[in-house]
């Protein structure tokens, strides 16, 4: 399935965008980035400098702390899953990493460039960053404002002044399976269809980094399976949030876990995490309740599949 998708992508009319060529991702690691500029980072998982590097990120809404001292780095081509219970600050972290809100403290760099809403006022940096980093909002409605699905997908590419606009729109619409809806107004679609349109709209810019906020929340099991295959066929760097533990290993190989205290309580291999019930319970990602089997009652921690 994955292979077929991948080939379908490769054989498309459009020349293969650089980020689809292999698992390394399209970030051309700049050798210009001086090593001294980067604080010491964990051992490199993939080659080259990190594409995203966050240090000491803390965020408060009013007096309420929702992120506490978050630090990590992500390398080109990595597939990272961000896990955390409701209200742990996942969406807030993604908005910070997309340069939309300024953290109360701490900073992060994209490809060696420090990113803040203030620095993004520089047109050149803004253009490059918005072109290369895309965020799928948790509520897809927030992203849909164009009169038709076609215009929605064309919104990004139109700003780049491309000549193959129509081809590009139809290509990505076909990739996510919304070709039949191209002429419909986006608000008339179902939740899952909206999510696919948003995804096509983001992919049409051919970004290097995809930040996806609960992309499977509105999808039925079949569409979820499709998305998993689809994402693993793309060579882009991805950071995906979810609180669905059973899906997490399908979405990435490395997990970041936000605890209930809004701190990063795990950063590492996802399979190691899944065996660590203590940690999962601390993150409020599993729950304990009683079971009754043939008259014997016992309690144990429990993962609920498909949310």
């Amino acid at each position: 399935m994955t292979e077929r998708r991948y080939r379908a992508v490769k054989n498309s009319l459009i020349p293969t965008p650089p980020f689809l060529k292999g698992g390394r991702g399209g970030i051309s690691t700049p050798s210009a980035t001086p090593a001294e500029q980067n604080p010491p980072s964990p051992p490199l998982r993939k080659g080259g400098a990190p594409v995203i590097q966050a240090a000491g990120i803390t965020h408060r809404y009013g007096a309420k702390e929702v992120l506490a001292d978050i630090g990590f780095s992500i390398h080109p081509g990595e597939k990272v899953v961000l896990l955390g219970c409701n209200g742990s600050g996942k969406s807030t972290l993604l908005k910070i990493l997309d340069g939309l809100i300024a953290p109360t403290a701490g900073q992060f760099t994209y490809d060696g460039e420090s990113i803040t809403p203030a620095r993004l006022k520089h047109p050149a940096l803004h253009h490059r960053f918005r072109r290369e980093v895309a965020l799928l909002f948790q509520n897809p409605d927030a992203m849909l404002f164009n009169p038709t699905v076609y215009d929605e997908i064309a919104f990004g590419p139109r700003q780049m002044g491309l000549t193959d606009l129509d081809q590009r729109v139809r290509h990505w619409a076909a990739q996510v399976g919304v070709t039949a809806h191209l002429e419909r107004p986006p608000f008339s679609l179902s939740g899952g269809e909206k999510q696919k349109v948003c995804l096509a709209a983001l992919l049409a810019l051919e970004p290097k980094v995809l930040l996806l906020d609960e992309p499977t929340a509105a999808l039925d099991p079949r569409s979820t399976g499709w998305l998993v295959d689809f994402l693993s066929g793309l060579g882009v760097t991805t950071l995906i949030t979810t609180h669905n533990l059973s899906l997490a290993p399908e979405l990435g190989s490395r997990a970041l876990v936000l605890g209930e205290d809004h701190r990063l309580i795990h950063d590492g291999d996802i399979h190691g995490l899944l065996g660590n019930m203590e940690l999962l319970a601390a993150a409020n990602l599993v729950h304990t309740h009683s079971h009754r089997h043939g008259g014997v009652e016992h309690r144990h921690s429990h993962v609920h599949d498909w949310q």
Partner: peptide, 8 residues
């Protein structure tokens, strides 16, 4: 924010 995020 979504509009800002999608605007080059």
């Amino acid at each position: 924010l979504a509009l800002a995020s999608r605007s080059l």
